[in-house]
Design a protein around this nucleic acid. Structure first.
Length: 904
RNA sequence: GCGCGCGUAGCUCAGCGGCUAGAGCAUCGCCCUUACAAGGCGAGGGUCGCCGGUUCGAAUCCGGCCGCGCGCACCA
């Protein structure tokens, strides 16, 4: 116990590594695959990219999932938090490409096979970083069972799903207009495209002469270079200006191709000239119009982002921008540019490479989603999958209701290569290459999200009917940020229903995105990002994070508990700004608990109240699993009954808040209990009972109660702040041999210990003490001075002595009282303060006048309200009665002030 | 453009028809050194985004506006 005496602060850096080791070595993170998924608890972690480093999102989501895992584990459920990483096709390929560039070589130079080998090497070297970082958070992921989306077994599951979907006709190959990412040189899906608003371009008006030679039609475009691929000009069928021209032909400038003027409802008559050039090869809308009118598709922009041979000799090989300039110049030379104006519009960019999307026609693999979407909508509508907050369900359902085919092929090398082989006109889809010579496999790989969609069941060994699958599928909760609700969550539901025969999880929790303090997103390039590890260990605090209370310089080493607490406390169902104060609050809580434990350990001794075999009677169904059990609490006084009652409340509330995904309330509620009830009041109240000359029987009983309350508080807080609580568990008398708190049981609230009478008595006593302290302060009574007084109020039989102690009063019998110098209203009556040297009479009378003024104002207010006939007539009776009672109370308080010696 | 959410004390938020609009943190003052100066006590600080309406009564409900965020969207 020596360390306890000397050390007044909780030191996370000393404690955390030691505790972490014990958790992992204990095997508690690695459950046996026994029992059923209904009895067990499981969460599949959103697999971080192998290229990733822990960021704030991981830290928050890790904290959330760990709270859920620990809480359920401590309720005796066999708990598995499924761990693994995602191969992250694009991100990882780019990392390795960069590495190759630094070595002066390239992916193309070394070839596909060598490149993939390089990626595996890279993964072996760096892929574990983020997992180690999760450990630092105290995350009880199953580290003994780590998966990777490119593992052999996982890959087999991916291919099996592909082959089945192909055989069932959901997957097909087609030439279609796709979102082409010229930076990546790959198609990407609609979800990987982001619209950038406010892009400034030039809108050109260009004249297309009529083939008849009799006039022209002027069209408007921001992309003159695509003119080379035009195959029609469209007008609205009801547009009188062009009605007569429908069916006529135009000569496409620079190219000379004849274009028919077609009529289509899509065209807006009030935009531009009302005539629209149609380029099915390079515009999504034109592509649709082209389909409706069976127009030819011409591609003048290639996958390399350069103009193709089809663009004509003069333009082939130019970049898009160069081609645009040349086309405009050429049109200008022919006098066909009719106008140019600045034009601000929305332009699609690739989320992946940041480059402007080039829509073009390409041969890709697609997955038809409509049939899979129906059941995925149903399970949310009928509550088999609950999305929290509910507003997110609407987004989910809306998106699935209008789902479009998913482009699943990517022109990358790192990923699951599409299991399709070609030989001449033959196509074969299967798990392995077909027999015979001359087959070549499709070079493309699958979208990474295709494999992620199988995560909850492929990690458990699907398609084998493994014991793991039996025990842990469906999982219970999926926790994620809203940005991948469609990209990932919806697809998991569809795939889970289709292939694993059940929903992948019953609850989806959509958590906050944490922004920088100035409201911008956290990002390295903006300088607004911070590394969670810098908060844990102490590291650089970027300028935007500095303020008066947290000046520039490094973060203090807050420790994991503080970071977890802080992130949970700031979380909500919508985006939040990072608040270092919340982290500091977590640190304060850890320290407070540590010092409360010191107090109890040093004053009571941890041996007190620990007896053999007493556990059966403990309200908590067995906190430790070891041989020793906590003695049951032995309440002797009203404050004992009060704190036990409040303890039951915080236990129940914390459970309910965790189950209801209200992590901020769970965390802050614990803080409030520990500070506002346990430490500020209970520990202060019982101090006199621990003194040398106190009754030894009471002292022993109090010791048992104190230990009990502290232990249950610590156990209740454990899922949120696991390190400090595990450490304190030890300090309170449980050695490692007796079991980890993390493997112990969450206290269960005992209704029998609820005591409303004690709660009322104590809340009155606390109010009284506060009122008396406020008064003392206002009349400048010295802190230590004991002031004589008379307690004239009901309901304080049990608390009077405690009030006297904490408010430094000496209550005398009413008969012995001298003339009072002040009267302080307290619930149910008042306290008369008698004359003494300690009281500044001038200040007391000032104070009295002020109190009277306040009361009079409130009385007037209440009277006015009750004088209002309409209020009395129309407001509900209980509201009116409440107002009358309040008035009466205020009048009584005023009367007591006016007539301190009187009896009423 | 359509849809969703948000705007309450310096900060983060609670309250979502009725007590003098609250809490934590921060600030300021006083105090203690007796588990914890990461302690105790207290104080200051708010036209509850703006305008209208409903109601005996609105931060709370309704409508409109303004601002911020997000999602969806095919206007060349």
């Amino acid at each position: 116990m020596g360390a306890l005496e000397d050390r007044t602060r909780f030191e996370p850096s000393e404690v955390e590594p030691r505790i972490l080791r014990r958790w992992i070595d204990s095997g508690l993170v690695h459950p046996k695959p026994t029992g059923t998924a209904a009895e067990n608890f499981s969460i599949a972690v959103p697999p971080p990219n192998v290229t990733g480093a822990l960021h704030m999102g991981h830290a928050l989501n890790g904290s959330i999932q760990d709270v859920l895992s620990r809480s359920n584990r401590m309720r005796g459920r066999n708990t598995k938090w499924i761990l693994g990483t995602d191969h992250a096709g694009i991100a990882t390929q780019r990392q390795v490409e960069k590495q190759l560039e630094r070595r002066g070589t390239s992916r193309e130079a070394i070839g596909r096979e060598a490149f993939v080998e390089q990626v595996w090497e890279w993964r072996d070297l760096y892929g574990g970083t983020i997992i180690d970082q999760f450990k630092r958070l105290g995350a009880t992921l199953d580290y003994d069972d780590e998966r990777f989306t490119m593992d052999e077994r996982y890959a087999e599951a991916v291919l099996k799903v592909f082959v089945e979907l192909y055989e069932q006709g959901h997957i097909y190959r087609d030439n279609y207009l796709v979102n082409w990412d010229p930076g990546l040189r790959s198609a990407i899906s609609d979800l990987e495209v982001e619209e950038h608003e406010g892009v400034v371009d030039t809108l050109y008006s260009i004249a297309y002469p009529l083939a008849s030679g009799d006039g022209e039609v002027v069209i408007a475009t921001v992309r003159p270079e695509t003119l080379l691929a035009d195959t029609a000009v469209a007008v609205h069928p009801a547009d009188d200006r062009y009605h007569a021209l429908v069916g006529e032909e135009l000569i496409l400038p620079l190219v000379g191709r004849r274009l028919t003027i077609i009529a289509d409802d899509y065209v807006k008559t009030d935009f531009g000239t009302g005539a629209l050039k149609i380029t099915p090869g390079h515009d999504p809308n034109d592509f649709e119009i082209g389909n409706r009118h069976a127009l030819e598709r011409i591609s003048v922009i290639g996958e390399d982002g350069l103009m193709t041979a089809q663009a004509g000799e003069r333009y082939a090989g130019l970049t898009v921008m160069a081609a645009r300039e040349r086309v405009v110049a050429d049109l200008e030379a022919q006098g066909l540019i009719r106008a140019r104006e600045e034009y601000v519009h929305t332009v699609p960019y690739s989320q992946r490479s940041g480059e402007r999307i080039e829509p073009l026609i390409s041969l890709q693999w697609f997955m038809r989603m409509d049939e899979l979407a129906g059941p995925a909508i149903d399970v949310v509508r009928d509550g088999r999958v609950r999305i929290h907050p509910p507003s997110q369900s609407k987004r989910y359902v809306d998106w699935l209701s209008e789902i479009r085919p998913w482009c699943v092929s990517r022109q990358l090398w790192w990923g699951h290569q599409i299991p399709v082989w070609y030989r001449g006109s033959e196509t074969y889809c299967g798990l392995t290459a077909p027999d015979g010579d001359g087959w070549t496999q499709d070079p493309d790989v699958l979208d990474t999200w295709f494999s992620s969609a199988l995560w909850p069941f492929a990690t458990l060994g699907w398609p084998e009917k493994t014991p793991e699958l039996q025990a842990f599928y469906p999982t219970d909760v999926l926790s994620t940020a809203r940005d991948i609700l469609f990209l990932w969550v919806a697809r998991m539901v569809m795939m889970g229903l289709r292939f694993a025969g059940d929903v992948p999880f019953s609850d989806v929790y959509v958590h906050s995105i944490i922004q920088a303090p100035d409201g911008r997103r956290m990002s390295k390039s903006l300088g607004t990002g911070i590394d969670p590890l810098d908060l844990i260990d102490g590291g650089p605090r970027p300028p935007v994070y500095s303020k008066a209370s947290h000046p520039a310089g490094d973060f203090p080493a807050y420790g994991s508990d503080a970071v977890r607490f802080g992130l949970l406390a700031m979380s909500s169902t919508q985006d939040v700004r990072f608040s270092e104060e919340k982290i500091a609050q977590g640190q304060a809580l850890a320290n407070k608990l540590y010092n409360a434990t010191r107090f109890v350990a040093l004053r009571v001794g941890v041996g007190v109240g620990v007896g053999v075999g007493a556990g059966a009677g403990a309200p908590n169904g067995g906190v430790p699993r070891g041989a020793r059990h906590a003695a049951p609490p032995q309440p002797r006084t009203v404050e004992d009954r009060w704190i036990l009652s409040r303890l039951q409340a915080i236990e129940a509330e914390t459970r309910a808040r965790i189950d209801g995904f209200d992590f901020a309330k769970a965390a802050l509620g614990l803080y409030d209990f520990v500070y506002g009830e346990l430490c500020d009041w209970y520990l202060e109240l019982v101090k006199p009972r621990l003194s040398e000359d106190a009754d030894p029987d009471d002292r022993a009983a109090l010791g048992a109660t104190l230990l009990h309350v502290l232990r249950e508080t610590i156990a209740t807080a454990h899922p949120i702040i696991p390190f400090v609580t595990e450490e304190l568990w030890d300090l309170l008398g449980y050695t490692p041999a007796e079991g980890l708190l993390a493997a112990g049981r969450l206290p269960e609230p005992d209704e029998a210990l609820r005591d409303p009478a004690a709660e009322e008595a104590m809340s009155h006593a606390i109010e009284a003490i506060k009122a008396l302290r406020t008064w003392r302060d206002s009349v400048h009574v010295k802190a230590g001075a004991v002031v004589p007084g008379v307690l004239r109020a009901d309901g304080y039989d049990e608390t009077a002595a405690r009030i006297a102690g904490l408010a430094r009063l000496e209550f005398v019998a009413e008969e012995a009282a001298t003339e009072p110098v002040a009267t302080i209203a307290i619930p149910g009556g008042a306290v008369d303060v008698l004359a003494s040297d300690a009281v500044d009479l001038g200040a007391a009378s000032e104070r009295l006048a002020k109190a009277r003024e306040t009361l009079e104002r409130e009385i007037a207010r209440a009277q006015a309200k009750l004088a209002n006939e309409r209020f009395v007539a129309k407001a509900p009776a209980d509201v009116v009665d409440g107002e009358r009672a309040k008035l009466e109370r205020l009048r009584a308080e005023l009367a007591a002030l006016e007539d301190p010696a009187g009896d009423g």
